[in-house]
Design a protein around this nucleic acid. Structure first.
Lengths: 169, 169
DNA sequence: GTCCAATACTTTAGGACTAAACTAATTGAA
DNA sequence: TTCAATTAGTTTAGTCCTAAAGTATTGGAC
């Protein structure tokens, strides 16, 4: 398939192939679904628990790692900047939900983990949160959810590689 | 194989069923994929064109509606607040990319559409943007992309309904 | 041992978005 | 007609997040 020469005399939009448009629409649909669910979750967490999604996700990560995590590992998993984690940590620590401890060997490292109070608090929220997510995804049957999960798994793995330098880098 | 009984004494997390966990993981995966792609697009649009994703999406919506759109319809499609559209419109109009005109009958309504310059500018960007999206999704083969598109379409339709009042509203 | 680069985190300045209050125009009911 | 309710859009205050520069510590290279 010879690709369109990017000159723009006709109308840039009509140059892209049908397959390309399909890829773009797939992305838009993925984005829309993600945004709609995210919006609902944000709203609900705020209304019911007065917590932001970022803080909830922060606690969720720690809940899965009882031994605690380095701050950098947290920012990587949460897909936010280190600076953001610094701020979130300060707030959550001030509320007694998490505790910071110096790293065992490297004095640059700070480990964070849930306090008992943090664990209790998160546990209660997670239950309600999970019910809501389950409910929202219930529109798809189990087989379709599994297929979706598998496809997105492949996509996620591919996305982890740093992008093929780009077609027109 | 009997599954591991939640080692931690039946805390909130271990209460949720296996199917529930799967739904939660599906959501997390969806969110991760969406965020990773979005991040790449944002970065690229900024580096190559000095434009934000919000502005690009704004132009993209108008490009699909040559007759123009009401501002409210724009905010609905972009999934942002009306106030945000007001600001974006002011900026883009100041740069000569879009133009505002009073609605034909209702004086409350403002119609927005691309200027010729806006159309040219967007066209050039859209081409590069689309190539990048295509490239990122190329990890999945055509059949899988189609299946994903279909599943997400069903999900999107279900999400459009206002949530089943919630399991524990 | 002494630097210099790399790493881990923090701080700061600024941008983008939202929610909520506000203005202006329209509709419809009495 | 008049006035309340609704609708379209704007403004404002505030939140959250990022990018980039800054600080402290570590680990080689020599």
């Amino acid at each position: 398939m010879t690709q369109a020469r990017a000159v723009v005399p006709i109308d840039a939009e009509s140059r892209v192939s049908h397959a390309d448009h399909k890829a773009l629409r797939l992305w838009l649909r993925l984005f829309t679904c993600s945004t709609m669910i995210e919006r609902g979750i944000r709203l609900r967490l705020r209304e019911r628990f007065g917590i932001t999604l970022a803080r909830f996700d922060y606690l969720a990560q720690l809940a899965r790692s009882p031994a605690g995590l380095r701050m950098q590992e947290l920012s990587r998993r949460l897909m936010v900047t280190d600076g953001n984690v610094t701020g979130l940590t300060r707030e959550l620590a001030a509320e007694g939900l998490v505790e910071r401890r110096p790293g065992p060997t490297d004095r640059r490292v700070h480990m964070v983990r849930l306090t008992p109070k943090g664990r209790r608090t998160f546990g209660a929220m997670a239950l309600v949160h999970e019910r809501w997510v389950v409910d929202r995804l219930a529109a798809l049957d189990a087989a379709e959810r599994d297929a979706l999960h598998a496809s997105l798994g492949r996509l996620k793995r591919a996305l982890a590689t740093p992008a093929s330098a780009g077609p027109a880098a």
